[in-house]
């Protein structure tokens, strides 16, 4: 609904994609998605400069500060849980070696490796999700705010 401020290139690409055959509607690959996200980030930066130049209102600045605070709080939460995850793995490593069989020892070792992998996967995907959501949410807010300030 709110895309009236999309730059010409983005608008052209979207129109081209929308006009493509049905099969072209399949989800894009990660390289394209990352480039698309980078494009949204660049658009957000340019839009922010323009918005603050045109309407440096206190309520807009307050919302930007609130967004940054909410974002940093979530980064902090992810960091806390990353640290807690490592502590849990470290405690698990210390409490090993009580098994009676070699197969159990091997299983415990691989469990630890798996836990490290899971922790890294979880932290990475949560961080990526936060960045993606914040970027899209900010773009939405920016578009609406620019529209409102021009109305």
């Amino acid at each position: 609904m709110s895309d009236s401020n999309a730059p010409p290139l983005a608008a052209f690409l979207r129109q081209a994609v929308d006009a493509a055959p049905l099969g072209a509607g399949a989800p894009l690959k990660h390289g394209v998605l990352a480039a698309e996200l980078a494009s949204v980030c660049a658009r957000n930066a340019a839009g922010t400069v323009r918005l603050l130049a045109e309407s440096p209102r206190p309520d807009i600045l307050a919302e930007i500060v609130a967004m940054q605070a909410a974002f940093m709080h979530q980064v902090w939460t992810i960091g806390e849980e990353w640290s807690a995850g490592w502590w849990q793995i470290a405690e698990g490593a210390v409490s090993l070696r009580n098994a009676n069989t070699l197969s159990k020892i091997v299983e415990q070792d691989f469990n630890l490796a798996g836990q490290v992998g899971d922790l890294m996967l979880d932290t990475t995907t949560r961080t990526a999700k936060l960045i993606e959501s914040a970027t899209v949410g900010y773009s939405y807010w920016l578009t609406n705010t620019i529209d409102a300030s021009r109305a």
Binding site: S2, G25, E36, E132, V136
Partner: peptide
Amino acid sequence: ESFRGAGFLAADAYTRSAMAIGMTPLI
């Protein structure tokens, strides 16, 4: 469908809007 500008493809835009706007808006 709050923000069609969230992606070039409609399906991507709606999925991202669902996450960012329909579930976890920062403010």
